[in-house]
Design a protein around this nucleic acid. Sequence first.
DNA 1: GGGAGTAATTGATCTAACTCAAAGATTTTC
DNA 2: GAAAATCTTTGAGTTAGATCAATTACTCCC
Lengths: 249, 249
Amino acid sequence: MALTQTAETRYTKPVLVAVNKPFDDEDGLQALRSHPLFSELNGKDLQHLIQQSRRIRLGHHQLLYRQDMPAHHFFFVISGRLRLYRLDSSGIDRTLDSIAPGDCFAEVMIYADPPRYACYAEALKSSEVLMIPVKAYQDMLESNPKYAQAALRHYAKRAVSRFHDLEIMTVQNARDRLIRYLIDLLPNGADEGGEVELPLPKCLVASRLAMQPETFSRILADLKANGLVRVNRSRLFISDPQRLIEISQ
Amino acid sequence: MALTQTAETRYTKPVLVAVNKPFDDEDGLQALRSHPLFSELNGKDLQHLIQQSRRIRLGHHQLLYRQDMPAHHFFFVISGRLRLYRLDSSGIDRTLDSIAPGDCFAEVMIYADPPRYACYAEALKSSEVLMIPVKAYQDMLESNPKYAQAALRHYAKRAVSRFHDLEIMTVQNARDRLIRYLIDLLPNGADEGGEVELPLPKCLVASRLAMQPETFSRILADLKANGLVRVNRSRLFISDPQRLIEISQ
DNA sequence: GGGAGTAATTGATCTAACTCAAAGATTTTC
DNA sequence: GAAAATCTTTGAGTTAGATCAATTACTCCC
């Protein structure tokens, strides 16, 4: 019960408060334009959508929305980092995803019925997001078949990636779950090894992988001791991914 | 390694062999028409799509496709039941989903790039599926914006439901995972209790929930002993879902 | 309907991972 | 930049769930 209270009372700031700063910096716009959900939009439509959207600034640990709240908006991350999580009846906080700049989230709610957020979303550090009205995007999709095609591709990809997440979680032992998670973080084709940055604090990666922080720490210490990873804060160097995969039987 | 061999050698029958029986029975057509991916199609387009599709009959335990095979088709279940699973490097077989008549599967591969099946699909009993060419469906989507809208709704829903599956798997203890799984199987709004049919043999439900069959059996026996469920083969009667949720802290 | 194969249950052990606790390290805040 | 808060690590003890083993119950064939 302790954690429920924490989560429900810690965030006394009102949620969903916009800053009155237009979204017009070239970097941000460029990032938005390169997202599959927006890349096909013509200049006019994109402009129109942005006008109907609001820019939100979030402080460290600030809540953006709550699970079960009506979902009238979806979001694009301009800067910072967020995480999605759920609270179960006993108040245990379960991390489901982390979201980086350039990503969208809650966009699947566009077609949910009734549209309610399936989880909590909070900023992991100070962040800025673009809050896009579901209705506005939906209307635009209907106006142009090409837009719908792009959205389809995006949604299909999202479904595949969730399927893959599920696959990791059907792995029974904690070490192998962690190893698969790390392998997935490695850039594509980095068979010769590479560096990985944990997208969440270690204790939240643990929660994402359905294990305790202590277990996470011990497994990582063990991998380190066996020369399989080198650890520097939240940066991990994986010299031989193939060997890592092999030991995860 | 044992299980890999089993899975790879057990199915000596060639995969993806069609029966030359047209898909024209009224029941089957009706089921297809009521699926969101096809309900918007006009008679002519639906007919055209069916003509390009093939009807496949699968025997008990017969493999439909293998993980990593090029995905040129997706499938609609006419009768029977199938399951999706993956094999990891040590040959452990991990069940990811079960599919009932009226459902589609591998439909997310329509937009995957490259299009490869993400898992194995096998019949759990003798089944019939409609094998639909990805290309044919894709072409049709492009021809009519209304179709794309329907597909979008479907894909978004699928993504939400995978997200929810993932949520169950972040629950750390086996009993609570099983309880949540059962609650999800209950028809919507059956707060007063109801009957649930396990969509998979118990040993495969166990695999889906990342636990051993023995653990599954013991947990169920325990719930039974506490009067929380009554078990009759693969049918479970849940008299008080609320109480079940409460004990799953 | 009887036999082969598979699935489910139950018991006995063993171990991976959880829990509790306490000390360091890191990060955030004022 | 010091204090507060949070995160991480490590140790010791406990337990949930895995593993091994053996019996019983189904299911699907011929």
